[in-house]
Amino acid sequence: MVAFQKTDWNDAYENGGNIANSEEIKSRWPVEAANFRANAKGELDISYGSEERAKYDLFLPAGESKGLFVFVHGGYWQSTDISIWSHCAKGAVDAGYAALIPDYTLCPEVTIDQITQMVAQAVNHAASKIDGPIMLTGHSAGGHIVAELGTTQTQLDKKTAARLTNIVPISGLFDLRPLIHTKLNEALKLTIDSAEQNSPAFKMPLPHIRLTAWVGGNERHEFLRQNALIANIWHGLGILTDAVEEPDKHHFNVIDGLLDKDSALMRTVLA
């Protein structure tokens, strides 16, 4: 018999307070992003809808693109924007892929479901510009969003969804029910019903995709559990899945592999 102690849900999903030098790490991201944008080929702030934050950046390789790489940023659906994350396109661009980084309106102004719809709209828009296979990845809340786009209830156009190959959520959240017990829910405003409706763990995956759930080995236990959960459930629903716990990585440096086209993370995304 396994006994479980009562969980402090706020602490279970708290990353910054449980990572040494977290503020210093996060302060580097806007600088790295600005440096990448200054030297990158592509187009910034492409509008894909009427909302103020309905825009995306599209970075292009030196030659003809091999396909479309998508990175969806995190922030618990209620913080950050694409200006902080441009450098996460580097590995894909260096490997010859166009890289899409979409923005979206934040909670509580919109719901999580509306955010997923916005990101789907951005991917549909960019897919009309870039041919070839489409690989989806996203960090934290972004990991949740790309998993949602890989279900049979996807908001992607049929032609766009058919082009999906690999989905690699990084430190993603796939069963949203525990978040109801956290202070995060002040902005998310989840109920049991809406948490279940927005949890990809409760949905059928598209039959032609492959999912690799990726997480840092030193992350909070809940992120390790959620990572294993989606790979386990979707494997049982008939698709190829894997769950990777990258050694010596935490929630804020697990994305570093996106900057290197030869990293294990990028080889998985682009396989």
Rank of each mutant, 00 (worst) to 15 (best):
N21C: 10
E52C: 06
I167H: 00
T191H: 10
K129Q: 14
K90A: 14
A195G: 09
S128Q: 15
D81K: 09
L206G: 05
S171P: 01
S50G: 03
L184K: 11
L100H: 03
A3V: 14
D256N: 12
N15M: 13
H181E: 15
G16W: 12
P207N: 12
S65L: 08
A126C: 08
R225G: 07
E186A: 14
G216A: 07
V215L: 01
W77P: 08
L190S: 07
Q197I: 08
Q197K: 15
V244D: 07
I101P: 00
L176M: 10
A34R: 14
A201T: 13
E196L: 10
E14H: 14
L58T: 08
A54D: 08
N227W: 00
H221V: 15
D131I: 05
A40C: 04
R220Y: 07
N10C: 11
T268N: 04
N227H: 01
F202I: 02
C107R: 00
A20M: 12
E222Y: 10
G49T: 07
M204N: 15
N185T: 07
I25M: 11
D11H: 13
I46E: 09
M266W: 05
H181G: 02
F174P: 04
F69Q: 06
A162V: 02
T241C: 02
R37N: 08
G63W: 09
V168W: 02
D57Q: 05
F4V: 14
L240C: 12
T137M: 01
K159C: 00
D113P: 04
N218M: 15
T212M: 01
A3E: 14
I134H: 00
S263E: 08
L259R: 15
A40I: 09
A195S: 13
